[in-house]
Amino acid sequence: MTRDEILAALRRHLNAIVPGEGDELALDDDIRDELDLDSMDFLKLVQGLHEDLGVDIPETDYGKLDTLEAFVGYLSR
C-alpha cells in the first residue's frame, strides 16, 4: 500500500463524513479538530478504512492517529 493510496483512501472516507473538507485537510492538521469529528465519526473513518484497506486499527491506537501524516505512518508499518 503506497502513501498515495493511503492518503486517497483517507480523504475519500473523510469526504464521506464531512463532504468536501477531506480534500482541504493539510497533512499535519489535527483531523478531529479541523473537521470537528466526534467519536462516532472517527469510528466511521476507522470502519471505512477497515472495509476498504483491510486494516484493523485497535481502539487503543485511536489516540495516536491525530493527523493524516500519523495515519500514513501507522498504516505504512
Binding site: Q47, H50, D56, E59
Partner: peptide, 17 residues
C-alpha cells in the same frame, strides 16, 4: 468496553457514548 472492542473489527465496536 476496551476489552469488548479489542477482539472485534471496527464495524462491531461500541463507543463509550
Amino acid at each position: 468496553l476496551e476489552a469488548r472492542n479489542a477482539d472485534r473489527p471496527p464495524t462491531e465496536r461500541v463507543v463509550p457514548a
